[in-house]
């Protein structure tokens, strides 16, 4: 046979519920905790190792200016990945039947197009901002309705919405670049204190706010409960559907917000937003390793986005083809998930 694994019980298999609480004895649980610690420490060590390697190989790497640049360049993907993380938290980590929002990248594209078009039409910054955020929120509302009212699996619902949204963007822009400028956009794309781009501060501030809500409020705790143990959450009287709907609204809003950031970063709306989709999905899923219990977290997603950002930046500084980045991302996610899976299997 092709795979030399007949005697290994595939205890974690595909779509089977992975999060079901297996009764564990204290021994394996301790071992698992140690192993989890090692994995988490290991991923942080890899992160640190990569930073150290780049800072030795490329002296410019570890300057404030460069770090700020990486933060700024990661802002758009970071905001999108954080939006996706919210959906994953509320929907559960099973990506096929659980929470996922494939419309996020297209959402960003359409929101950016709306912003740029409104700005072109001579509308003020406030109108354009409201337009972009409103677009994102509306897309989120459609997703929420499709998932919670029509009962379509998130993967498919957001896939269909993605197609519609990407089409609407083409209709709006006629597949061209819509340049946009304005006071607000120049402020966003300028440099802030210490010569660090404003976008970097925006990303950090945004993460801080969302992380505070998701990780340190009862609301956030309930969000995790809804995602991990929907039955228990329902039994405890939590409005599961409202939480799931709310998570899609939040991610839609993140898409609109990312749209504004991308308009300022690129001085207009451009086509090809859809290409951001899979990298954003990987970033959000990779963020799991930066959390203590290997669950999706906002700060973990930020670290993951920065990790990818530093990787791309380091490769550029070293003049290594940045095409390797996607390979490294893919390998990382496979390594991380393999390690997690093997650890879980040992623990059972």
């Amino acid at each position: 046979m092709l795979v030399d694994a007949p005697y290994i019980p595939p205890s974690v298999f595909g779509l089977e519920e992975k999060t079901s609480p297996e009764p564990e004895k204290s021994g394996p649980a301790l071992g698992r905790r140690l192993a989890t610690l090692a994995l988490r420490g290991g991923s942080l060590a890899v992160f640190a190792g990569v930073l150290v390697f780049f800072s030795i190989a490329a002296p410019f790497f570890l300057t404030v200016g460069n770090i700020g640049n990486v933060l700024g360049q990661s802002a758009i993907a970071g905001v999108l990945a954080i939006g996706l993380t919210i959906v994953v938290i509320a929907g559960g980590s099973n990506v096929v039947t659980g929470g996922i929002d494939l419309s996020l990248a297209a959402n960003m594209g359409l929101s950016a197009a709306v912003y740029a078009t409104l700005a072109q039409a001579g509308q003020g910054d406030a109108v354009a901002i409201l337009g972009a955020l409103g677009t994102g929120l509306a897309i989120g509302a459609v997703n929420a309705a499709a998932v919670t009212l029509a009962g379509i699996v998130p993967l498919l619902a957001t896939l269909a919405v993605m197609n519609v949204v990407a089409g609407l963007e083409l209709v709006l822009t006629q597949n061209t670049v819509v340049p946009a400028s304005g006071e607000f956009l120049s402020t966003l794309s300028a440099s802030g204190p210490f010569g660090v781009p404003v976008l970097a501060y925006v990303l950090l501030g945004f993460t801080l706010v969302v992380a505070a809500i998701v990780q340190y409020t009862p609301l956030g705790l309930r969000l995790y409960a809804v995602g991990e143990y929907p039955d228990a959450a329902r039994a405890a009287g939590l409005p599961v559907r409202s939480f799931v709907a709310g998570s899609f609204l939040a991610s839609g809003l993140c898409g609109g917000f990312a749209g504004i950031l991308s308009v300022s970063y690129l001085s207009g709306s451009t086509t090809g937003a859809g290409e951001m989709l899979l990298p954003v999905v990987v970033t959000a899923l990779l963020g799991v390793v930066f959390s203590r219990r290997l669950v999706p977290t906002i700060t973990g997603t930020l670290l993951s986005a920065l990790f990818v950002g530093f990787l791309i930046n380091g490769f550029q500084l070293l003049n290594i083809s940045s095409t390797l980045v996607s390979g490294v991302q893919g390998l990382l996610i496979l390594l991380v998930v393999s390690a997690t899976t093997l650890l879980c299997r040992e623990a059972v």
Partner: peptide, 25 residues
């Protein structure tokens, strides 16, 4: 998927990314 036990979505997403890099190389 069958050997290590990774969920198909993540495994094949990883393959997609690695495959893209391999092709560029």
């Amino acid at each position: 998927i069958a050997g290590i036990g990774i969920s198909p979505f993540l495994a094949t997403l990883g393959t997609l990314f690695v495959g893209r890099s391999v092709q560029q190389l």
